[in-house]
Design a protein around this nucleic acid. Structure first.
Lengths: 201, 201
DNA sequence: GAGGCGGAATGACATCTGTCATGCAGTCCC
DNA sequence: GGGACTGCATGACAGATGTCATTCCGCCTC
C-alpha cells in the first residue's frame, strides 16, 4: 500500500483527486494539505511514501516544498502535478530533487501509474515538457545579465535597477543590451519575457 | 435531474469533477469536452441544462464558448469554473451572459449547490472576485488609449504600434503617456500590466 | 449661436535607453 | 611570461521614448 500526501490549494481539485486516487487498491491518501507550509507539517506528522504537490500553492510553492521535504522527511518522494508549467519550472523542480513532473492533462489512471513508478524509485517527466526543456537548452546569459534582467522584468526604469544593483546606469544598460541581443529580443522588456518563458531567470 | 456538460482541458481534473458530480443524486454529467470547440459540438448534440466551462481551454476559451453557447443553444445556462481569475475575466464573462463564476477553491458540495442555483435561474459570483471587480471600478482610459495600450502590451516598439494603428509615432507616444499617467505607471510597460490586471484591456 | 469641455491627433523638446569602443581583472593554454 | 579569451564595468554617442503646448472636431449647456 502506497501512502500519499496530497497538497493542492484548490479544494475542488484536491477533493476530486483524493476521491479518484482512493479508488486504486494500492494507494491510500493519508494526508491532505492546502498550502506549502501545511504540506510540510502533514508530511512530518504522517510520513507518507509519496508527496503529490501542486506547483502553484500559497506559501512555499510545490518546488520549494519539495526541496524542504527532501531535507526534513527524506524517505518521502516528492512529485509535482501542475496546470501551466514551463521549462523553467521543470528545471527548478529537478534541481530540487523532484522525481515526477506531471501536467494535469494526464488521466487519473496514468497518475496512479506514475505514483507507482515514482514509489518504486523510478522517475517520470512529462515528455512534452522534457522536450521543451531540452529545446530551450542552457542559458546563454552570464550571471550578471540574468540578475539584471530579473530586476528589469517588472518594467522598472534603468535608474531604479542601477540603484538596486549598485551599478552605474550605463553598465546596467550594457548588460541588458547584451542579454537582449543574445535572446534575439528588440528590448529588455521582451528579453525578460523570453528569458522567463525558457526558465533562464 | 440536472443534465450538465463539463468542459475542461485537463483530463485529470475533468475526470475527477465528473466523478464527484456523479455522486450527487440530482446531477447527471451527460457530456464532456476538452476544448471550446468540442464543448459547442457536445452542447448541440446533447442539449444540457447547464454547461460548466473551464476558463482556460484550447480553441475558444470558457468565456468565448459561453457567448457562442448562448446563441446556438439558448436553453443551456453557461457557468465558468477557473483557477487563476482576475477581475477582467469576470467582467468579460458577465458580458457574455455567464450566470455563474466560481474559483476552483470551492468544495464539490458547494459547486453542486451553485449548479443547482444557476439551473433554477439564479446567479452566483465568487464574492472575492466580485469585490476585486468593484474595487477596480470603471476604466479611466479612453478607447484609443486602451487600444494602443493593448498593442503595446507585448513590448513592441512605438514605431510598430504606430504602423499597426496607422498613426504618427508622436500620437502613439502621447496616448501611451496619457494612459500611463492615468494608471500611475512610470512607463507604458508597467501601465500595460496594470491595465491587464484590472481588466481594462 | 457662443462658450466650454473632452477626445483625437500632431510636432518640438528634453530625457531615457540601447549601441559601441574601451579598459581592467581573472583564467586557460601554450 | 605572453597571448587569447571571457566576464565585469564605464562613458560617449545616436536613436527611441515621454512630456508638453497646440490645433481641430464633435458634443453638451446655457
Amino acid at each position: 500500500m502506497i501512502r500519499i500526501l496530497l497538497a493542492e490549494d484548490e479544494h475542488l481539485i484536491r477533493g476530486a483527486l483524493a476521491a479518484l486516487l482512493a479508488l486504486e487498491d494500492d494507494i491510500a491518501v493519508v494526508a491532505e494539505a492546502g498550502s506549502g507550509d501545511e504540506a510540510l507539517a502533514m508530511a512530518r506528522a504522517h510520513r507518507p511514501d509519496v508527496a503529490v504537490l501542486d506547483l502553484q500553492m500559497p506559501g512555499p510553492d510545490g518546488v520549494a516544498a519539495a526541496a524542504l521535504l527532501r531535507e526534513t522527511v527524506p524517505e518521502c518522494t516528492p512529485m509535482i502535478v501542475t496546470s501551466h508549467a514551463g521549462a523553467g519550472a521543470l528545471k527548478r523542480a529537478l534541481a530540487a530533487g523532484v522525481r515526477g513532473f506531471v501536467p494535469k492533462t494526464v488521466s487519473a489512471q496514468q497518475l496512479a501509474e506514475i505514483i507507482r513508478t515514482v514509489h518504486e524509485g523510478g522517475r517520470y517527466i512529462d515528455p512534452e515538457l522534457a522536450a521543451d526543456a531540452i529545446a530551450a537548452g542552457e542559458s546563454p546569459l552570464t550571471s550578471r545579465e540574468a540578475e539584471l534582467l530579473a530586476l528589469a522584468a517588472d518594467g522598472a526604469p534603468v535608474a531604479e535597477i542601477a540603484a538596486r544593483a549598485a551599478l552605474s546606469p550605463g553598465t546596467v544598460r550594457n548588460y541588458l543590451s547584451a542579454a537582449a541581443a543574445k535572446l534575439g529580443a528588440e528590448n529588455r522588456h521582451v528579453a525578460a519575457r523570453v528569458a522567463r518563458e525558457r526558465g533562464w531567470l
